[in-house]
Amino acid sequence: MSPLLAIHDLSKAFGGVEAVRSVSFEVAAGEAVALIGPNGAGKTTCFNLIGGQLRPDAGGIEFRGRDIAGWPPHKVWRLGIGRTFQVAAIFPSMTVQENVQMAMVSHTGRALNLLTPLAGLEAEKADALLERVGLAAQARRACGLLAYGDLKRLELALALANDPALLLMDEPMAGVARGERAELMALIGRVVAEEGVSVLFTEHDMDVVFGHASRIVVLHRGEVVADGAPEAVRADARVREVYLGAEAGQGGQPC
C-alpha cells in the first residue's frame, strides 16, 4: 500500500540559507510521526511546505498519490490535510461556535454564500465537535476571552472540521501550561484515534514525543539525520550528538 504522505527530496532556501535540504520521509495511514530537531532545523519550514504556506524550491510532496507541491493552502486543506500552528491561529472577532461554523461552511463549499445568515448553518454539528474537544460550555463566548489551552482545543476542532485524513500539528504543546499538557495530549490522542486520522507533529517536549509518536524523524540543519522507531532514534549516535545530548537516556526535557 502506498503511504498517505510521501515527501521526497524537498528543498527550500531563504536568501541563500538552505532551511530544508533534500528531505525525504513518509507518513503511512494510521501513523503518528514526530518531526523533531533543534530550533532552526527546518521543522516549521517543512510544515509550511506541506501545508502550502510556502512553495518548495525543489522536490515532491505526494498526498494519496497526488503531487501537491506548490499548491495553495486552501486547496491542500480541501484534499483533507488539517493544520494547527505553533501559535494558535483562530478568528478572534468571532465566537467559539462561529469559528467552527466558518470552518464547516467552508468545507461544504458555501463560503461565498451571501444570502443565508451564518447563524443557522452547521450550528448543531459545530456544537457536537466542540463537545468532543471539551469546549461546549464556551461555545457562545468570544475567542478573545479564552485561556490559551482552550484556544489550542479550538484550533484542534478547526483542524478536524473537514474530517481530514492527515493532521499537521506544529508544536501542539507550545505555550500550554505543563499541568494542562497531559490532558490536552490525551484529548488529541483520543480524538485522533476515534477519527482514524494520521498525524505528523513537531514538539520540543520530549515526554510528549516519546510518549505519543509511533515513528520519529530527526532533522538537523535542514537534513534528515534519523528516521525510525522511538527506541532506535533514542539510541542513534548521531541523534544523541546533535539533539538529545547526554540526557537522552533519561527521556527528560533536553537541557
Binding site: P38, H204, Y243, L244, G245, A246, C255
Partner: peptide
Amino acid sequence: PSEGLAPKIL
C-alpha cells in the same frame, strides 16, 4: 534564554 536551544549551546 534556554528556550529552544540545543544543550551544547545552552
